[in-house]
């Protein structure tokens, strides 16, 4: 006689006989099911022992997951099967209680709040008003440390970069870019000298420097002197969401943003011709100094990067 037929202490019968069909296991062959479950428990436990061993000898990472995952999975399957096939199959029924209370109870509850509360507040309107005002002021007062302390105000920082008149353009290693460095169809990411390893230099000042052949280039009005010897510099910060526009297709003459595929026409003021970017990439005015180094004439003439409220 196996365990499951033996209901010595049944879950309160409540009028059901111990041999009631609802208390019988669902399995057709409980003994077989029990053996299978026992097998899953044994193998599962062995796998967990295996996990301890694998951990101990510092085995490959996948062995840890395989032993622990397999062990837990088998124990879980066995436990589910135990509940599903060997425990009372039911079904059983439970009555729902109506959640709502009687009319009288509800009225008593509402009366307590409305009458007591109402009478107190109505009679002491001044106090209620003062307390409300005090709490309101506290809310505002709490905003100062909770919000204002979090960071500085933007002020003008979003409008400027670290490019100044005469700033040398350097690559990531700090090497100044010489007019002879780039061949036509080349690209390099440049920073204002000394800023290449700062957070701001990386995030705000980053600029792509390209060398293109002059024939294909449409010079924008007012930018006649900005691109000496075919050197053109655009902000690397996408005007859509600020990703670095590092993808240059030199035959199509497109700068593409790898995040959302905005495409900027390099030969025509980096005006976007596809994708979600709303504005051209700002162009950095360049000149070549007497020693042949690439330097900036001045800062960008507009804020770089994505749009924001204060930007005109």
């Amino acid at each position: 006689m196996s365990e499951h037929d033996d209901h010595r202490t049944p879950v309160s019968l409540n009028g059901l006989a111990a041999n009631d069909p609802h208390f019988q296991p669902a399995a057709r062959n409980p003994l077989l099911v029990e053996r299978v479950i026992a097998l899953t428990f044994v193998v599962g436990t062995l796998l967990l022992v295996g996990f301890v061993y694998c951990f101990w000898v510092n085995a490959e990472p996948w062995t840890l997951g395989a032993t622990m995952g397999g062990g837990l999975f088998l124990l879980g399957v066995g436990l589910v099967a135990w509940g599903k096939y060997l425990m009372p199959k039911g079904p059983f029924v439970e009555e729902r209680h109506v959640l709502a209370n009687s009319e009288a109870d509800r009225n008593a509850f509402a009366a307590a709040i409305v009458e007591r509360g109402g009478s107190v507040v109505k009679r002491r309107r001044l106090l209620a008003g003062l307390l409300g005002g005090g709490l309101g002021v506290f809310t505002i007062a709490a905003m100062f440390p909770l919000l204002r302390s979090l960071g500085p105000l933007p002020k003008g920082t979003l409008f400027h970069t670290d490019w100044r008149s005469g700033t040398y353009a350097v690559d990531i290693t700090g090497r100044r870019v010489h007019v002879g460095d780039l061949a036509v169809g080349s690209i390099v990411t440049v920073y204002p000298e000394g800023k290449q390893e700062t957070d701001r230099g990386q995030a705000v000042d980053q600029t792509v420097l390209l060398r293109i052949s002059n024939e294909a280039f449409t010079t924008q009005k007012g930018r006649e002197t900005w691109g000496p010897h075919g050197y053109i510099a655009y902000s690397k910060v996408c005007t859509h969401l600020g990703c670095p526009v590092g993808l240059y297709e030199q035959q199509l003459q497109l700068l593409v943003c790898p995040c959302h595929q905005s495409m900027f026409d390099v030969t025509n003021g980096a005006i976007p011709n596809f994708g979600p970017a709303p504005r051209p990439l700002p162009q950095l005015p360049l000149y070549v100094d007497a020693s042949g180094y690439i330097r900036s004439q001045k800062d960008y003439d507009q804020p770089v990067g994505p749009g924001f409220w204060e930007r005109s």
Partner: peptide
């Protein structure tokens, strides 16, 4: 009954997650 099934299911979820992680 339900406690057995649901606890077992917890182990199954953990097991599958660990296998994916492996």
């Amino acid at each position: 009954v339900f406690m057995a099934k649901t606890t077992g299911f917890l182990f199954v979820v953990a097991g599958v997650t660990a296998l994916l992680g492996a």
